[in-house]
Amino acid sequence: MPADQPAHRKIIHIDMDAFYASVEQRDHPELRGKPVAVGGAALRGVVAAASYEARVFGVRSAMPSVTAARLCPDLIFVRHRFDVYRAVSAQIRDIFADYTPLVEPLSLDEAYLDVTDHLWPGQTATQVAREIRARIHETTRLTASAGVSYNKFLAKLASDQNKPDGLCVITPERGPDFVLALPVGKFHGIGPATAGKMQAMGIQTGADLRAQPLEFLRARFGKSGQYYWNISRGIDHRQVRPDRVRKSVGAENTYFTDLMTLAEANDALVPLADKVWRHLDARELCGRTVTLKVKFADFHQITRARTLPRPVASQAEMLAIAGELAAMVLPDARGVRLLGITLSGFDHENPVEHVQLRLFDE
């Protein structure tokens, strides 16, 4: 383990399994064991979540509903019930609070817990993770996966290893080498666009990333270069922060085929707006500023924003504003590689820190 990585930290990452879809299957026995998608089945509907039975067919969150239905003809669409999901999330967080005050929620269905200074004599973080998972199942009749490690990066990686209903522990001895064989696209903090850029440079795995000098990574990726250098060695100094404040919520997507027309861009904005609005709705947030991010095929990036004198009233209004902003800069002969929508300017009574949503299941 690296000498500059604190050895004593005990971090748990809890991630509910197919949360929205699992709640629906729990509450509707006729859906159990069947492919289920939470979301609208209409032409412009988007999948908010997919059960594991649906994922076998390639159905994923943020996928257009028509695509999901084509992949899985027997797919059952159900409307979301965010009030129910919030209530279940509150039950889960009550359980977390019994073990540590250092809980950092990432969304309704996942959180980091730092139990370093909150273990009984002889108790281990792994035992706590097992107990939390058992209590979640007993209380909610839902399953959760957990990752345990000495930092946030590795704990989150671990929670994804044995899904669903799994537990993975990455010890300080295993940590530095655990990442070597993993594709860089699996690393938390490396999105699709950055993963694609790395792959174009021949950086496919954690081992490839570790082989790059720090100066090279800083030159290619700016301030993030230090973070990438660290995580390729199992180092992550970020603390679990229960009081962090979010200032915006955004979603973006990188396209394998460049968008050449305004109409194509407008169509692509629909799932982005849906993703952002679902996250806002789940957290009961409202904001006044809509920002559009556009990255062209030559990697030149611009943003355009509009601030209302009042909170944005609906997903449709947010989408309409984003479309108007897009019309200011598109079409462009270079083609569009990436689009993003962010909503900010939240009420002071209910501030949140910036969170960037990806258009695929974690």
Results as ranks from 00 to 15, higher is better:
residue 252 E to Q: 13
residue 280 L to M: 13
residue 294 V to G: 09
residue 297 A to N: 13
residue 310 R to P: 02
residue 319 L to S: 02
residue 270 V to T: 10
residue 250 G to H: 13
residue 263 A to S: 08
residue 319 L to P: 01
residue 243 D to N: 11
residue 291 T to F: 07
residue 279 H to G: 02
residue 305 A to Y: 14
residue 275 K to R: 15
residue 298 D to A: 08
residue 278 R to N: 09
residue 309 P to T: 12
residue 263 A to V: 05
residue 226 Q to F: 05
residue 309 P to V: 02
residue 263 A to F: 06
residue 246 R to F: 12
residue 326 A to W: 02
residue 236 D to I: 09
residue 301 Q to W: 05
residue 295 K to N: 10
residue 281 D to W: 06
residue 240 V to Q: 13
residue 277 W to L: 05
residue 323 G to C: 12
residue 324 E to Q: 08
residue 286 C to R: 12
residue 280 L to N: 05
residue 315 Q to L: 04
residue 245 V to E: 06
residue 243 D to L: 12
residue 301 Q to T: 15
residue 285 L to K: 11
residue 246 R to W: 10
residue 236 D to E: 12
residue 291 T to K: 14
residue 284 E to A: 07
residue 223 K to P: 00
residue 239 Q to A: 14
residue 257 T to D: 15
residue 233 R to F: 02
residue 319 L to N: 03
residue 298 D to V: 12
residue 321 I to D: 01
residue 222 G to T: 02
residue 318 M to I: 09
residue 294 V to L: 13
residue 238 R to Q: 13
residue 222 G to N: 01
residue 292 L to A: 08
residue 283 R to Y: 05
residue 302 I to C: 04
residue 294 V to N: 07
residue 318 M to D: 08
residue 314 S to G: 01
residue 229 W to R: 10
residue 233 R to A: 01
residue 291 T to G: 07
residue 272 L to C: 09
residue 287 G to H: 03
residue 257 T to S: 14
residue 283 R to G: 02
residue 311 P to L: 06
residue 225 G to C: 10
residue 239 Q to V: 15
residue 274 D to L: 07
residue 272 L to V: 09
residue 302 I to K: 06
residue 327 A to Q: 11
residue 244 R to E: 15
residue 307 T to N: 07
residue 298 D to S: 07
residue 279 H to M: 10
residue 247 K to P: 03
residue 266 N to F: 06
residue 306 R to E: 12
residue 325 L to Q: 04
residue 325 L to R: 05
residue 286 C to P: 05
residue 229 W to G: 10
residue 261 T to H: 01
residue 256 F to T: 15
residue 275 K to V: 09
residue 291 T to L: 08
residue 300 H to R: 13
residue 284 E to L: 05
residue 311 P to R: 05
residue 249 V to Q: 14
residue 260 M to A: 09
residue 296 F to T: 02
residue 290 V to K: 03
residue 255 Y to S: 03
residue 252 E to A: 11
residue 251 A to L: 13
residue 266 N to A: 06
residue 304 R to G: 10
residue 223 K to Y: 00
residue 227 Y to V: 12
residue 239 Q to W: 07
residue 238 R to L: 14
residue 326 A to C: 08
residue 273 A to S: 13
residue 320 A to H: 09
residue 248 S to Y: 03
